[in-house]
Write a protein that binds this DNA or RNA. Structure first.
Lengths: 242, 242
DNA sequence: CGAAACGTTGATATCCTTCAACATGAGTGG
DNA sequence: CCACTCATGTTGAAGGATATCAACGTTTCG
């Protein structure tokens, strides 16, 4: 099923920069495919050579690294509108993997075509760089959590961050939103053991910070949760541009 | 003291991409200043609006975030040839600070001029994006350390990574190189306490991994140190392009 | 129904932090 | 030149946060 960029619901959602008709036509032109993949699929494998670039059209994904002995570190989560594989495409081989957290839909942007498009439309290069910078700032945030926050603060910060990102995408209703992470994902993102993650979540739940029902999360006290998280005042800009 | 891009020692060091005479002239044209700052100077302050972009011409720097209560996380170290403040320039305000670790020399690239230059020379935009991707992969590496490596592994991984980066820049002689980090810097980069950092360093030293003499470090057993670090086989590309 | 993935809980071990004290060296003013 | 301070580094002891181990519960799904 091809989805035209013209009727793209992401673009229509007014979160995104307005592009000229000409720009839109150019983007449509290089978009080669609209892919669907199931939860758990490997979108980019570590070591992949010359991977393509994707726009995450629907669903969640995450980026991770593995140590030689199997320990996993999740670097960042990706939501609709995020660009996948930009850095990987810059190098000879992907230094990390990207896995689908839920069923996902991807728009494929072949990297060679994208580079040539930049020649014609430098403004687009800026937008792509902007998305890259945004993605780095998510990693910065998470590194600060893992390095300098306690377990409870980390969990709270992760939930608050995802909540805010989902909110911008209109995926939150009455402080409730889809939350597809398992406790193992949370543990691997926050540098905690599975057991300790479980106990920390339970503690925050008991404190009345949030509730979880089959795959969705409700924040019952966003303000306090944010304070527990030692959340920054400044925030990563939330408006993707492409 | 103005340094011409034509006689730039960085560019001459053959680590960098060859640029056409035309490109070089353009870069020279937008370079507004050659700055010197002492160790400890704040190159970019958290919250700075519309900061400029810099090329680190000489010296070391580091990028960091602070939690509201003062805890500090160092995100990455920067060596000559690295671009400073690229992400900050993309947003309205810097989400992190950059501090000079040693005395530094900076080439100032006013961001507006840089953006307009991209219109004329899209290849340059790619190079800048490449540097941005490279910088992100350093953060990825460090996040993996902090999240999933033990204290000894973290320290070893940091030293090995800096050693390799310095080596590419020809700053290593007989496995010895300038190492300006204090133990506090190491602790803040690796998410460890100062005391534990000290004891971990002492342990690795006792194991014969390295020696330190007034500001420089000698790796006495690089191979083993790399194994202790659980270092990745794949590595971040080491060749800056601008 | 059975298996596999995911979640929960208690007990124990350990890594790392915190606290406290002291050592060393560089810089500064008296 | 000495006393002083400040930044940095070192070391031991004690406590706490988090990991590991083990067992069991719950849900999902073929």
């Amino acid at each position: 099923m091809q989805v035209s960029c013209h009727e793209c619901k992401l673009r229509a959602s007014n979160l995104f920069k307005r592009v000229t008709a000409e720009e839109l036509a150019s983007i449509q032109q290089i978009k080669s495919e609209h892919l669907k993949m199931p939860a758990g699929a490997e979108i980019i494998r570590i070591g992949d050579e010359a991977p393509e670039i994707y726009t995450l059209y629907a669903g969640w994904a995450f980026r991770y690294k593995m140590l030689p002995d199997g320990r996993r570190q999740i670097l960042a989560f990706m939501l609709p509108g995020d660009l996948l594989g930009l850095q990987a495409a810059m190098f000879d081989a992907a230094l990390f993997g990207i896995e689908a957290l839920t069923d996902v839909q991807l728009c494929v942007l072949p990297r060679k075509k994208l580079w040539t498009l930049f020649d014609k439309m430098p403004g687009l290069a800026f937008d792509v760089a902007w998305l890259g910078a945004r993605s780095e700032s998510f990693v910065d945030e998470n590194l600060t959590s893992v390095g300098r926050r306690t377990a409870a603060e980390r969990v709270a910060a992760l939930i608050v961050t995802l909540y805010k990102r989902a909110k911008v995408l209109d995926m939150v209703e009455n402080d409730m939103f889809a939350f597809p992470l398992t406790q193992q994902h949370i543990a691997d993102a926050l540098g905690l053991s599975l057991v300790h993650t479980n106990k920390t979540l339970a503690r925050l739940k008991r404190m009345g910070m949030f509730k979880q029902h089959n795959g969705s999360m409700t924040l019952t006290n966003p303000r306090v949760l944010e304070r527990v998280a030692q959340h920054f005042d400044d925030e990563v800009p939330m408006r993707p541009l492409i």
